[in-house]
Amino acid sequence: MHVVVINASPRVRKYSNTDKIMISFCRGLIRRGASFEKHAISERKYWGVIRQAFLDNDEIVFAVPLYAEAVPGLMLEFLETLPKKDNRTRVSFILQGGFAEGCRLRCGEELLRDLTKYLGVSYGGCLVKGDNFSIRLREGECLDRIIKPYEKMGELFANGDGFRFNQAKKFTGPEIYSTPVRIATDVVFKTVAKRTMIKMAEAAFGCTTPLDYKPWAQNSYELDSAISQNEQFFTLKKKYNM
C-alpha cells in the first residue's frame, strides 16, 4: 500500500502540529510495510506536485487542523483546484484541533465526510482527536508523549480499511467531560495553563505585553481596564518569578 499524506494546515511545516502528528502516523505505516509520501499545502509552489500525487494515487489521507469549527480557508482554496476523481480513490482524514472534548470536532468531521461526495471519491473515515494546541510549544519526551499514539493508528491504517476500525473510534477520548473533570480543567485553565502561556510567550516569542492586551481600547472604560490588566500582569510576573 502506498499512502499520500497531505498536511492541510497553512502553518509552515516547521511549526505545524499536524506535521508532527503525520510523522508519527507515517512511522506506523512503514512498520507495517506500507510506503508513504508526505506533502503540505502551506507553500503554494508545491500545489502542482500535490495535485499530481492526488491524481496518480488511490489512497489519500488529508491531515487537517480544525480552524474556526471547519477546515482552514487555505484548504478550501486548494480543494477547488483538485481534479474530479472516482470512487476507486479513497480519501480519509486525520482531524485534530485545540479543544480536547471529542464533541468539539464533530462539526468539522461532518464537513470532511461531505467533502468526499463533492470530490467524487470514496470516504475512508476520519480519525478525530483534539487537545493538540500545545504541540508547537513542546519538544523531546513531552512532545513524543502527545504524538506517539498516532503511530499505532498508522499501523492499523496499513491494514487497508481506512479509519474504519474500532480503535480509531476510541482514539477520540471522551466526547464530553463529566462535571468534576470540567471543574478541575477550569481551575487548570485559570492557573497553571494561564501561567504557562505567559511564560511560553515570553520564552518563545520574547513577548512581554500582557496576552490579553487590548490594542484597540475604544472608550475610557476599556482603556482603564487595559491599564489595570497591564499592572496585574506585572504583579503576576513578579509573584511567579518570571
Partner: peptide, 29 residues
C-alpha cells in the same frame, strides 16, 4: 463551494483570532 462558504469568506473568519485571547475558561459547560 462544497456546500459550504467560499474560501474567501472562510479566510475572513479564520483571521478573527486577534479579537480572541489564548486564555481559556469554562463558561456554561
Amino acid at each position: 463551494k462544497f456546500g459550504f462558504i467560499s474560501y474567501k469568506a472562510k479566510n475572513i473568519v479564520d483571521r478573527i483570532s486577534p479579537i480572541i485571547t489564548t486564555f481559556l475558561h469554562y463558561n456554561n459547560k
